[in-house]
Each structure stands twice: as C-alpha cells, then as structure tokens.
Simulated assay, not measured.
Amino acid sequence: MTSSQLLVADSLTATVDELYQKFGAWRTARALLFVIWRQRQTRKQVAELSDYQLRDIGLPERQSSSRSPYFMPPHLRRFD
C-alpha cells in the first residue's frame, strides 16, 4: 500500500471510531446499513433509465445498448 492509501484508511478508521464513540455501535451500524440501502435504491433507479436520460442528468451512457433493451417486463428484470 502506498502512503496515501494508508492515510485514507487511517482517517476512515478514525472517523468510524469517532462515530462509534459518539453514537454507539447500533446507531452507527444502522446508519451504515441505511446508506448502503439508499445507494442500492439509487443504482436500481438509474439502471432503468435510457441513454438519453442518463446523458441529460450528466451520467455516462451504457457501454453496450444491445445488452439491455429499453423496455423489459418487470417479471424478467434482474436486480443486481
């Protein structure tokens, strides 16, 4: 690991430790799980957008448009 990676890892550890000391283990864990859940929901919502919509909101377009059709019935969708 480089020194910059160690600094980031140390600051992350220190931040999590500070949150644990201030709010406790359960509140910190619950907040982490909430953030993970929100990011997953956002990725699911963005995954359903067309290339035009992705471009409009400033996100990169998909690499292969042949892989995912513009419309897929809900029972056939795969959520990662």
Rank of each mutant, 00 (worst) to 15 (best):
M1R: 03
T2L: 01
T2S: 02
T2C: 01
S3R: 14
S3N: 06
S4W: 01
Q5G: 03
L6V: 01
L7T: 06
V8I: 01
D10L: 07
S11M: 09
L12Y: 05
T13F: 04
A14R: 08
A14L: 08
A14G: 13
E18I: 13
E18M: 11
Y20L: 15
Y20R: 15
Y20T: 14
Y20A: 15
Q21K: 14
Q21A: 13
F23A: 09
F23S: 14
G24L: 04
A25P: 00
W26E: 12
W26I: 09
R27L: 03
R27C: 02
R27Y: 00
R27N: 04
R27D: 01
R30N: 07
R30Y: 06
A31K: 01
L32P: 02
L33H: 07
L33I: 04
F34L: 05
F34T: 07
F34V: 05
F34A: 08
V35S: 11
V35A: 06
I36R: 14
I36V: 12
I36Q: 08
R38T: 05
R38E: 09
Q39G: 10
Q41G: 03
Q41F: 01
Q41D: 00
T42N: 11
R43F: 07
K44F: 06
K44H: 14
K44L: 08
V46Y: 07
A47F: 05
A47T: 05
E48Q: 11
E48P: 04
S50G: 15
S50D: 09
D51G: 15
Y52P: 13
L54Q: 11
L54V: 06
R55N: 13
R55Y: 14
D56T: 13
I57G: 06
G58T: 05
G58Y: 06
G58I: 06
L59K: 06
L59I: 13
E61C: 13
E61P: 12
E61T: 08
E61F: 15
S64Y: 03
S64Q: 06
S64C: 06
S65R: 13
S66A: 05
S66I: 00
S66R: 04
R67A: 07
R67N: 03
S68Q: 10
P69G: 00
Y70D: 14
Y70E: 15
F71S: 02
P73K: 00
P73Y: 03
P73S: 03
P74E: 05
H75V: 08
H75Q: 11
H75W: 10
H75Y: 12
L76N: 00
R77F: 03
R77T: 07
R78T: 10
R78G: 09
R78M: 07
F79C: 11
F79G: 12
D80E: 07
